[in-house]
Design a protein around this nucleic acid. Structure first.
Lengths: 156, 156
DNA sequence: GAGCTAAAGTTGAGTATTCAACTAAATGGC
DNA sequence: GCCATTTAGTTGAATACTCAACTTTAGCTC
């Protein structure tokens, strides 16, 4: 089979790829800076608290929380330790599975989230949504979802 | 003035935002894993070597390199130290400005890049481009560039 | 129910990044 | 020419993440 070995990117592909990587990095960095300043935590930690706040009873098993936030178990363990220090999260043993733990949002965690949320939404608009037309917003949803679906498949 | 305070995201905006963040993280993580495995370095380091390889004489001033790779000066300093240890980059004094240094790609650096490039391009296709229609590729270029232009403005 | 394998989570070491503080050289008045 | 301000880059400490190794408990299978 003619493998046509490295199928280099053509101009259009190159453009899309570089624009995407640049935009991703700038955007996530900007969000991190904003949240670090306004809420004292990085964006990934903020997302952890958001997921908990959306969960029934403000609690989730560590593994579910790891999956929901795209974190490895190790990463979540470290993060939970830090969030626990800060008093925004508690870990409680799971009664039905003695290996497991629930991560629970504390009242202080809810408060810091409530305080940070409006600024965060504003930042998302300012850094991203305001730069796009309504059509582009919809296109982005489709593109993002396609990429996510692809990356969530078995073969990497 | 009626500030309509936190202008929360509507469903469409929410979808686009979450899809984008999820896709970004998954994609950059996948690339990092691939490059760590195949070239022994993270994606940001790979990009540093790429930029040098594209520069005239395979050399750039540290500041230019920092700007080109979206890195802070500090970050680039640390990265350059590591890449120098690995033998892929050298720093040489700038003759016309005694504060400054050039970062220069070494032969070993060129070789590791040449060896890794085909696999990297394949990964970019597999993880992203293959999941998109040609129209989406073009849309993504436009969206990415709009976001970058917006984030590159003075007001953050 | 004994033993095996898988799942849940933690831990420690190593690496990448940030932030603030720093050194040294260039630049711009005056 | 001299002093103040920028600019170039580095450094060290603190934080976040990865990877591999580990402990403990569940769940099977016989």
């Amino acid at each position: 089979m003619p493998v046509t070995n490295p199928r280099w990117l053509d101009e259009r592909e190159q453009r899309a790829w570089r624009a995407f990587v640049t935009a991703s990095r700038l955007l996530l960095d900007a969000l991190d800076r904003d949240l670090q300043r306004d809420a004292g935590m990085p964006h990934t930690y903020y997302e952890i608290l958001v997921r908990l706040s959306e969960a029934p009873d403000h609690r989730l098993r560590m593994s579910e929380l790891a999956d929901a936030t795209l974190a490895s178990r190790s990463r979540l363990s470290h993060a939970a330790a830090r969030l626990e220090e800060a008093g925004w999260l508690r870990r409680v043993e799971c009664p039905t599975d003695k290996r497991g733990h629930y991560a629970v949002l504390t009242d202080a965690g809810r408060r810091v989230l409530t305080a940070a949320a409006p600024g965060h939404v504003e930042a998302v608009r300012r850094h991203m949504l305001d730069a796009l037309t309504p059509e582009q917003v919809d296109q982005l949803a489709g593109i993002g979802e396609a990429v996510v679906a692809n990356l969530s498949q078995p073969g990497s």
